[in-house]
Nucleic acid binder design. Structure first.
Lengths: 338, 338
DNA sequence: CTGAAAGCGCTTACAG
DNA sequence: CTGAAAGCGCTTACAG
């Protein structure tokens, strides 16, 4: 079932059919002819072959987004944002989940690339080495190696989170962070350290724990921190899932939040507000971020010179019920009264 | 940069290059020639054009999975399962999130289809009308209209959930369910009703609430149920997110789980075990489900006659801390707390 | 073990 | 307003 069959069926040429289906009929094909073509196509069950179109035009009208863990709602939001932007431009976005495997993500993205996607949005995945002359690659929240990029002001967020805790009187603050290789993890850590440094508090290595951005790792690392002889009075986390894991760790060892322990998350996924107590966290505009990255890739794919090829979005600290004064300090504040 | 350039560079024909890159060199191309081709390609930065290959071979080596809400961890698991199965066969799986818009999902899937994907996995999305002669469509957990399908034994799960509550002594049981159009929502409801019927308990329409499978709707519908003059002593939910929403509703009105109210979820997403108290829920094998659906699509795409084109996976009730005996006295609620 | 040639199904100047 | 023809970059019999 090809455009030739349709053309034959209603006695027109293949070009006419093509014009109708590529939306270029306006002013070139008579309304009657167009209607005839469409009804013949419908009758035959014809649909244009996208691979042929992509081969001929050099554009697949699709971009692919590669993320490490779609199970983390952060990336769901990112995808939504990217899809909204792409959709408006008539593009589809396909998602690849690498399950935290940087190598595979790169290989798979590569496979999808040449000819099948017009752009690539990479989150914490090693960019393929063949950047030159290929489809545009936009790097999200990680090392860009010369690729255009979109990131969040992670350092600003970490700094705000830490200052909030310092203002409340905390001095012994635990830090959970992500994989060493992740730029976003390093940036979060840098922000924490800078704020500590600024407040003249020496960095205590035993209070820094590293793991994946998951609930499970948050729980394990949290348990480790709570088992220290000199327990922290507050913990800042690499992301909200880790923070929720710390909630679980606290529950297990009978530590109350925020009375005995303050907890700060990162991202502000939906679950942060649902938690009991609601989680104080650094809000990242992830949908906005997805839209920005997709827009950048789209304009690059269209051959436009973007006005800007390096974006940074603001973050804000959202104070909820999981933070309060440290237990040893002045009288505790009842969080339900905030 | 095409295979012809590579061929020219190392003095072989285009066919030789093609054979090397399609993995058919074994026994046809000498090791020396293959090495020469590969190094020339690397030097030139050549990658085979996937659109051309797809056009020629009629296979894109990719399938697409369409889901209503990737933010729901259920679908993350489904994707993971599908990806694992597809990957083993050398296929990529791309995900489309419809954001609960059935129409758009169908349109988008359609766009990605012809020639760009070898199969389509649809979850609660209207299958495109042109089924005949196109790429295989596997329908997950919804009305199949003749398409091969994979589903979970939802009725069995609902039945088990309800029996569990009945065994504990509950008689006034609230039911949260999903959109009317969703077959999976209807199946869950049917299971609940059947169990109620079987126990000789008349169905009380005021105890049935309908909404999306989200935390927010769970909270709102839960609040409504808890505001009833004759409050239910237990609530079974359409999915875990709704159940977590009910937790929040209960917290708001000062109802304790499981002492004052038993709650049962559906799916067993990670968050169910993390909740406080851990959620009793119906475990669905969603990763398995994704793998099954992908495998079905793959074998269909390969032109094989599958041994079975209708799969149903078991569900099991996982009893955790959110269910217990109904409270002794008549339930009371303080309306001022709502 | 390697090469010449046809063709997958479109789009797009170009001619009329 | 419509048609004939070339060509996008591969793969695959077929011939040698």
């Amino acid at each position: 079932m090809t455009s030739i069959d349709v053309a034959r069926k209603c006695g027109v040429s293949q070009s006419t059919v093509s014009l109708v289906f590529s939306g270029k009929a306006k002013g070139r094909i008579s309304a009657r002819t167009e209607a005839a073509v469409r009804s013949a196509a419908e009758e035959l069950g014809y649909r244009p072959n996208a691979a042929a179109r992509a081969l001929k035009t050099g554009a697949a009208r699709a971009i692919v987004l590669v993320v490490p863990d779609i199970t983390n709602p952060f990336f769901g939001g990112l995808l939504r944002g990217a899809q909204t932007a792409a959709r408006a431009a008539g593009y589809a976005v396909a998602l690849i989940d690498t399950d935290n495997d940087r190598e595979w993500g790169s290989a798979s993205a590569e496979a999808l690339r040449a000819g099948l996607a017009d752009g690539l949005l990479l989150f914490e995945v090693d960019p393929p080495p063949f950047s030159e002359g290929g489809e545009p690659i936009v790097v999200i929240e990680s090392e860009s190696r010369g690729h255009p990029s979109a990131r969040l002001d992670v350092e600003g967020g970490s700094d705000a989170a830490l200052r909030h805790l310092l203002d409340l009187g905390h001095r012994r603050i635990g830090v959970l962070t992500g994989p060493v290789r992740d730029l976003s993890a390093r940036a979060r850590l840098d922000g924490f350290r800078a704020a500590l440094d600024h407040a003249g508090i020496p960095v205590d290595d035993s209070l820094e724990q590293r793991g994946l951005f998951t609930f499970e790792d948050g729980r394990e690392l949290g348990l480790r921190l709570l088992a220290l002889r000199q327990r922290p009075t507050a913990i800042v986390c690499g992301d909200d899932l880790q923070a929720l894991g710390v909630y679980e760790a606290a529950r297990r060892v009978g530590v109350r939040i925020p009375d005995d322990l303050s907890v700060v998350g990162f991202d502000d996924v939906d679950q942060a507000a649902w938690a009991a107590p609601p989680l104080t966290t650094v809000r990242q505009q992830f949908a906005q971020m997805g839209a920005t990255a997709a827009g950048l890739a789209l304009s690059l794919a269209a051959g436009q010179e973007p006005t800007q090829d390096r974006y940074e979005l603001d973050t804000t600290l959202v104070v909820r019920g999981s933070t309060g004064r440290p237990p040893a300090g002045p009288p505790a504040v009842d969080p339900t009264l905030i």
